[in-house]
Nucleic acid binder design. Structure first.
Lengths: 186, 186
DNA sequence: TCATGAATGTTATGGACTAACATTACGTTC
DNA sequence: GAACGTAATGTTAGTCCATAACATTCATGA
């Protein structure tokens, strides 16, 4: 028997239909009514699963992992180094299939202004979590906030560049971005 | 006779009413119909002046100045130093009255998720301009992009912190944020 | 004065969301 | 496996943001 409940199944069905339609005819040109119909469900149901149209794309298990992993690093490393190494180890855990899906979503976000705007809200949660951990490790609160926001900005830029350029690895792109922050530190 | 045309006057009237109402009862709780009515004008007119509700707050002469000033620095300085010094000289040109208005707007943005999200769109234009200038100065395009996004993330964080904390100067806050990026470089 | 174009008003429409209430489907207990 | 309670979904109605097409007022110079 399936592990997934009915709720989980319709949710993922909605997510898949949304992604496919967005890729096919664009985010703005696709109405949630169309998505709902494609998933064999009502408009209302869509909003019960994803609070807003953008959430159908932006809901991924990616951001929480970052915060988790950064805070798992030894506390005596400096903030930037912790972020870099934390991300490196986190990304090595993704499968090929995962990467394909992540790339599809990130590319869509990278190409859609409304999605990029909505993504910052996700980002802020991650950023706050990272900053909190850094501050708990003894960093000045303001410094922690800036460091967290800065690292995420670099990672986001790397993600968008990677999604558009097929001959780069995710880890390569992110590594290169973080190297820009890190220049002069070694 | 007034220097400002009728168009400019209704525009600024709309902007002032919007800011006041947003501060009074919140951004989401204020409809553009209310703003329009307060300004003695139609809802339609609002949208002709500001393409969207958020633009009533986010339209300021701030972002363009940043890009302008960063690119005005001598090309042989390194990217980060150019950004820091460029901003420093740009901000010193603001009057007390300007600072009060900037603070009101930034505080509203800092407190309103929807406005923070919409602000990134503004940000991207500035970021692209900065990156272009950095790349024209010989920097690798990807590096330029990351540097631009990173600096703006730091500045934005500083802006939000400054708007909420009355005993800090704008330039102090931004300086402190950029110092976080700069640590280890000197 | 009147003619021209800019600024604004009117009306109609569509799409994103919310609220309140009705209904169906699912799983659990007996 | 039948009844019951609840989770999941449907229905309806409405608000607000935003756009389009067309009409109207207002300012300004010939």
């Amino acid at each position: 028997m399936a592990i997934s409940s009915k709720r989980e199944r319709t949710r993922s069905r909605l997510g898949e239909c949304a992604l496919a339609l967005f890729e096919e005819r664009g985010f703005e040109a696709t109405s949630v009514a169309q998505i709902a119909r494609a998933a064999g469900v009502t408009e209302m149901t869509f909003f019960r699963h994803f609070g807003a149209k953008e959430q159908a794309v932006l809901t991924d298990p990616f951001d929480p992992v970052i915060a988790e992993v950064v805070s798992a690093r030894p506390r005596d490393e400096e903030p930037l180094a912790r972020a870099v190494r934390g991300l490196r180890s986190a990304l090595s855990g993704l499968s090929e299939a995962d990467l394909v899906m992540v790339r599809r979503r990130v590319r869509l976000v990278a190409r859609t202004p409304a999605l990029r705007a909505a993504a910052v809200t996700q980002n802020e949660v991650t950023s706050a979590a990272i900053a909190e951990r850094l501050a708990a490790g003894g960093a000045d609160p303001f410094t922690a906030r800036v460091a967290a926001q800065t690292v995420l900005a670099a990672v986001t830029t790397a993600l968008y560049a990677w999604a558009e350029d097929p001959h780069w690895t995710l880890i390569e792109s992110i590594g290169a971005a973080l190297d820009v922050l890190d220049q002069g530190h070694d």
